[in-house]
Design a protein around this nucleic acid. Structure first.
Lengths: 329, 329
DNA sequence: TTGTATGCGTTATCAT
DNA sequence: ATGATAACGCATACAA
């Protein structure tokens, strides 16, 4: 006798329909079956409101159509957007998303990765920071913004190109001496290339530049100090600023207002990410827009192709510039 | 012979340790076992790098420690914050989060709810809009911001009180004739009470008010039109505006700038939600802050107590006012 | 084409 | 305390 609280099983359906267990299974899985049997089974399914138990299914098939998604959080608007796009992309391919917010904590990153071994998920898409992350060779893993090794695909924006585009854009808008400002990202991840790309672009364009690089954990107020140090006689030493993120750019814009430096008249500012104000208005600033939807699609594509013979270790997707009021274009 | 790709099972561990299957299970589950056996089993587990298969576990126990979280998206900063808080709260209680972004689509809302019957999840926390959502009586479901029936707990901010607080705050700051502005939320959900609370607060405070209620799908530009209609002779008809959300407030602030109406000198504006700019700076405007973390904790608490004899149908958590530069306080 | 029987990995019951 | 065995619900190979 079944527990009263338990849901109907295939056996119940078979009993109700007066057919064998295997027949029910075949109907469920769309395998060829006699039409009269199919009718009986289907009406029995409806009558009992039967649903397959995906744990039993997973136990047999060794897969659950679930992908774990590791991100620091969903509060940061860039992450929020990324999570949304990936979830939608996974859903399109009939995958479920197990969301894991790591809060930048290494222990949580490792804990969630251990989960995959318990077969909770078929694969992991991770935007992680843990320097000594231990991912199994044969664990389907796709990394975002950070290369973890030759066997693990990494999806990223073309950060180098983005930095270079920013520099060239500033140059074409008349800048001669510019600054690059960044906080955190002390790890060797892809977004660090924004700096290199920017420097390269400065060289190409014949601009001189200075860097203001704050360590992780530093207060952003050091940005203000830096700007103050390069401000004298009512004039800022730079005519252009490239910020590693739109968030940084937003802070810098506030600093410039305090210093009474006019944007974009006296100094032009370009950020990175393409974040929108409250997610639905314009850009925070002129910015290098990351192709978030393409990144999401590519991640899912790569996770999907688990048996790819040759996994490209690094895929950089093209970015583009969008004016947002903080440049003279 | 086992497939080479397969992970080690309890049987493998038992074989390796030279003990019986049941003994291994006991060690795993912390049941009393002879010390020497425990040693052997534990070293075998380490040697084989064994992990329990949670599908088999779920099949037996009929639970998976996974909760589905239904939200429209994670792009909206309020949702992003909510999702983050709920995920963290669930994680604290050893639940995993299956994230489902519905994009306000009824079919997806129903699809995800059907999922629970397949035993993919132990319960659902949902912020849904579907008017004819069909949730099973005995499906553990906690609703956010919308009452679905007497057997389904609903967690919400105290929206009525929030609206009233906003009115009283505007009154105490000198307002006499105010406006309430809202778009969407045509459904009978909890946030609609913001309007009633505001109206009540206006009565109490002796303020007169006007409503500008835009239907879902309308363009926000109608807000601008409304303001224009109440603007003449360089003066706005209102000295205070309460917006149903911070996002609306942000748009209204832009409109007021276009009309050259000074905030907060000529008109004071209060929003609702407590959303922060780029998630980490100040508030967008003076606002009624929702206790997002408390909402998250309460949702998890309610889902956790599945066998609660008396489920309170509606729980309203206290909100509070925070100045954000668009009021004279 | 349909039905039967076995196994997936774990837990729990019941002898030992 | 320990070990054998049945059962969870499904899929499938194999027999009818």
């Amino acid at each position: 006798m079944r527990k009263k609280n338990s849901n109907p099983t295939m056996k119940d359906v078979a009993l109700e329909a007066g057919v064998a267990l295997g027949t029910v299974s075949k109907v469920i899985n769309g395998l060829p079956v006699g039409e009269e049997y199919r009718q009986k089974v289907e009406s029995a399914i409806k009558k009992l409101n039967y649903q397959v138990n995906s744990y039993a299914q997973g136990l047999k098939a060794n897969r659950t159509n679930t992908i774990a998604l590791l991100v620091p959080n969903t509060i940061n608007p860039f992450f929020g957007n990324l999570v949304n796009c990936i979830t939608v992309a996974l859903s399109k391919r009939h995958y479920h998303t197990l969301l894991c917010c790591t809060d930048y904590r290494q222990d949580l990153e490792n804990k969630y990765i251990a989960m995959v071994k318990r077969k909770q998920v078929d694969g992991i898409i991770g935007l992680t920071y843990n320097p000594n992350l231990r991912v199994d060779e044969n664990t389907p893993f796709v990394s975002i913004d950070r290369c973890l090794g030759p066997t693990i695909p990494c999806i990223s924006s073309d950060n180098f190109a983005g930095g270079q585009i920013a520099a060239e854009k500033l140059a074409s808008l008349g800048c001669r001496h510019v600054a690059f400002m960044r906080i955190g990202s002390s790890l060797t991840n892809e977004p660090n290339k924004r700096k290199s790309g920017f420097e390269n672009g400065c060289m190409i364009s014949g601009m001189t530049y200075e860097n203001c690089l704050l360590e992780d954990g530093t207060s952003m107020e050091d940005f203000y100090r830096f700007l103050q140090e390069h401000y004298s006689g009512g004039k800022l030493a730079f005519d252009g600023i490239f910020c590693a993120t739109d968030t940084t750019a937003y802070y810098i814009l506030q600093c410039l207002r305090l210093l009474n430096v006019k944007v974009p008249e006296e100094v032009q500012v370009i950020g990175f990410d393409g974040v929108r104000i409250l997610s639905e208005f314009g850009f925070v600033c002129s910015t290098i827009v990351q192709p978030v939807e393409d990144i999401a699609e590519m991640c899912v594509e790569m996770i999907h192709q688990e048996n790819m013979s040759t996994k490209p270790p690094l895929i950089c997707l093209p970015v583009h510039y969008e004016p947002g009021g903080t440049t003279r274009d």
